[in-house]
Amino acid sequence: MVECVVKNWQGEEAGTASLDLRTAKEENAAHIVHRALVRQMNNARQGNACTKTRAEVSGGGRKPWRQKGTGRARAGSIRSPLWRGGGVIFGPKPRDYSVKMNRKERRLALRTALQGRADDLIVVEDFSSQLPRPKTKEVVAALSRWGVGAEQTALLIVAERDENVYLSVRNISSIKMISAANLNVFDLLTADKIIATASAIAKVQEVYGE
């Protein structure tokens, strides 16, 4: 179980929140999280790179010159891979890079990754009421009060998307906002800091707690 201090909009302590998730055993944790990360990155690949072989390149039906007597090397087609504009040898073709992983393993990896970042987790009170209209400057000031450095990247986890919060955050290149229902291993591992609202922590505990 992880006990977290909840901070208010001004950056002051306003209570505590607990996160108790079933995680992988220590000797297997890195392996299962790595598998989930590789799966997510592979499944994001389009796999649509395509090159043409000498059979697919247009032209080349006629032998460029006769076999003997010219003094030049023999050539059978201007679309040979040795020629400029010819086919490609062993080039990429469209393929499916997706990797399968059991749902229970995926959820276990996600829980393990989240609880493993407990030292970088910052829990704050829901602050949508503090933004009656979109205001990026106020969010930047709040991030500083919460302990997020100017050069650090952060993942903001909210229970439900609020339009004013989204519009205030979207222009901050170092911040990515996602809902608790869209948690993923890649975002959890790549952010320097993880900021979660108290309601988001409660939702994560409800959805992923077992």
Rank of each mutant, 00 (worst) to 15 (best):
R45K: 13
A142H: 00
E210C: 08
D20E: 09
K135V: 07
E210T: 10
V99R: 12
S18Q: 15
V33R: 03
N28I: 09
D96R: 06
K93Y: 04
P81Q: 13
A202P: 05
E210K: 15
G147E: 04
K63V: 04
V185T: 09
Q46D: 02
G91C: 02
V169P: 00
S144E: 13
V204F: 05
R95H: 14
L19N: 02
I78S: 10
N28P: 06
L82A: 15
G91K: 00
T70Q: 09
L167I: 09
V57D: 07
A181K: 12
W146P: 02
A49W: 12
V165Y: 03
R39T: 11
E151F: 09
K135A: 10
S80D: 09
R62C: 08
R95N: 09
G149I: 04
L155V: 00
I172W: 01
P134R: 03
A150W: 09
I201G: 01
N171D: 03
R72D: 14
V123L: 05
D162P: 13
V33N: 04
V38C: 14
A49G: 13
Y208T: 06
G59K: 12
G91P: 05
I32E: 07
D119R: 15
A200K: 00
Y208M: 11
I32Q: 05
L110V: 03
V57C: 01
A49Q: 14
G47R: 10
V124I: 14
A44S: 13
V88K: 02
T153L: 03
V38T: 08
A118N: 11
Q130W: 06
D187Y: 00
N171G: 04
A55P: 13
V2N: 10
N184S: 08
S144L: 10
G15S: 06
A109S: 08
R72A: 13
